[in-house]
Design a protein around this nucleic acid. Structure first.
Ligand SMILES: [Zn+2]
Ligand SMILES: [Zn+2]
Ligand SMILES: [Zn+2]
Ligand SMILES: [Zn+2]
Lengths: 142, 142
DNA sequence: CTGATTGCTACAGCCATTGTAGATTTCGTC
DNA sequence: GACGAAATCTACAATGGCTGTAGCAATCAG
């Protein structure tokens, strides 16, 4: 049986994070010692590792909850699981697109600035007026 | 003189957001009508437009505060302003790098899944075990 | 003047944690 | 068994950047 600190060390999560996951119902309530401290078995360790790894891959806690629920029905088709991953991929791609547009604007601002007086700083000019921009940054990509 | 609602419409910010910016000291306290409603001049409009555009380019409110402070000294060198933008560019680039790694893992998971039973779902396998991953997702890029 | 719209303050909620304070429990060592 | 250090407990507040709500008060068009 593992203490919450041991679980934290093994998974890279913080102790408070594990308690938070329990609070929101993502981790089940574990057994307790006589003194009231949490004790976990391998199931708890596996579940927490799954959660942490999914977080590292950018899944939201809600998506992870969905994945964990779905994985409780091993005989069903995994189409729904794939859909969750597909959604996540699309979100990642949208964010990449948006960030690339931002990168271009930032690079342009920096390259056009002659590093002179604040009064003539090209960066401030662009920030003051979106007309100076090439992209939209309206959330829909370029 | 502009009401807070007009300011919101002109800049695309929400009314509450403008009040929030005032609360954290990013927007100055404007004049008020006899009845206590906020009234803004062009300075307020310009400042809010600057803040919103900077937010659209991904700058944090702290970075924006810095930029606004720096822009109050028009005769100084703009090196510090450029440094803020440079920092922002580096952050954007780091995020792109990280997201690209995530995209690769997600694409791989999805392409390897044969869309069969949950029990055999490749996506769940990968999420359960980071050993199945090619990248680190440790925040330091690939 | 009246009614609709807008604005006001104060507070709570979102996500996903992290940090804190003060009390209690557990564990290793003697 | 006793002692002290380390870990854990609960409860609550804070982070960033807003957004939403409730219950009033002010403003504006007709
Ligand atoms: Zn400059
Ligand atoms: Zn722009
Ligand atoms: Zn699958
Ligand atoms: Zn991995």
């Amino acid at each position: 049986m593992l203490s919450i600190g041991t679980l934290a060390k093994r998974t890279g999560a913080k102790v408070q994070t594990i308690r938070y996951y329990e609070q929101i119902g993502l981790m089940p309530e574990p057994g307790r010692t006589e003194g009231g401290q949490r004790r976990y078995g391998n199931a708890g360790l596996d579940r927490l590792a799954f959660i942490r790894h999914s977080r590292e891959l950018g899944f939201s806690l809600e998506a992870i909850r969905e994945l964990l629920d779905l994985s409780d029905s091993p005989e069903r088709s995994c189409a729904q699981i794939d859909a969750v991953a597909q959604r996540q991929l699309q979100e990642v791609e949208a964010r990449i697109t948006r960030l690339k547009a931002l990168r271009i604007e930032l690079q342009r601002m920096l390259s056009e600035c002659s590093a002179d007086r604040v009064a003539d700083c090209r960066i401030l000019e662009v920030l003051r007026d979106h007309e100076e921009c090439l992209s939209n940054h309206d959330g829909t990509g370029i």
